[in-house]
Amino acid sequence: MYDSGKIIAGLIVFVLLVTFPFISNMGKASAKPKPSIDTPVINEMAVKKCVEPKEFMRAEHMQLLNNWRDSVVRNGDRIYVNTAGQSYNMSLQNTCMNCHSNKKKFCDECHNYMAVNPYCWSCHIQPKEQPNEQPKENML
């Protein structure tokens, strides 16, 4: 091979780049996120139900919250009627976080795992939990 020094160096860089995810995860066990619904309000509920079915909420909660924000902030409409016909007050802090008062164990569990930084808390006030343990990373 001609110019083998340069070519082999380039190939080593290529292989390291491609296998970088494998190398950096070598021998690490991956912990799966387990969002918790163990909060006082949820535990008191007879039927543990969110405003929409669990599968819908898991996939579409960001879209739902975005629509709620648009509805409240831009149209002043605070009433959400879900697919079952029940009405809810559109409010992140008073409706969502009333039940899911455990932001760290519920929201952050998956958000941190997926490396998403929703910008909810740049306007809303974060729920106070375990005041001695402040979140280390500042949410975007």
Partner: peptide
Amino acid sequence: IVGVKELAMGLVS
């Protein structure tokens, strides 16, 4: 999406 990451993490580890 969380399942996707679990699958990906399983693959790379």
